[in-house]
Amino acid sequence: MIRSRTAVFIVLACVAIFAAIKIRNAPSSEPVLVGSANVNPTGPAMVPWREPAKDMARFFPNASEYKLETVVLSRFRPEILRRMEPSYHMDSTAVYSYLILKNGSPVGRVIPRRISGIHGAIEIVVALDNNLTVRKVAIQRSREPENITNWLFADNFLSHYAGKDYQSDFDLTRMLSTTDSDAIKTAKVLSLGVKSIVVELTVALKNIAHKQGRK
């Protein structure tokens, strides 16, 4: 009798756990987008990716879904700082990167980041290929005035970042056909932001891959 009761209890517990897992993983209103656990969305370095569907269509037209991955940087801090300019202030210990998938296989990554512009925060979205070279850069939010947005946020300027990797020269100020000091300063900030994403991710992922290879 006691055994049968225990069995019923175990079955009920299993059903409850299964139901809880099912509810947690239930598809959202946008079924193509796969979220991920183990991320604190209120963390200081977390910047929302505001238009994932639209950006995915622009950056990776054939991609079907994405999932959030957290790459911890703490261990690689000295190497990252060595590869960046002395003025770079590394204030985050992790990169929140969206792994873009096509039929379950990764085709690249998208990383949104907030950088300090002259007139307020600028949120950039950087798309990287699987080999961690820049595919595209876009601006998802800024407070900058037109004298800056006209020059810097246009596709013909941002397209100069395409193909750059962690060893490239990110200084694009020579590409600007303006002498506006605010535009030049913002271009530098923008380049530093894009470079920091590429360097941080490359250093961390290469080290992780190297370590896994040794195992």
Partner: peptide, 11 residues
């Protein structure tokens, strides 16, 4: 949100 501190500009 705006990454501002005293002395910065805000537009």
């Amino acid at each position: 949100t705006e990454l501002r501190k005293p002395g910065d500009r805000l537009y």
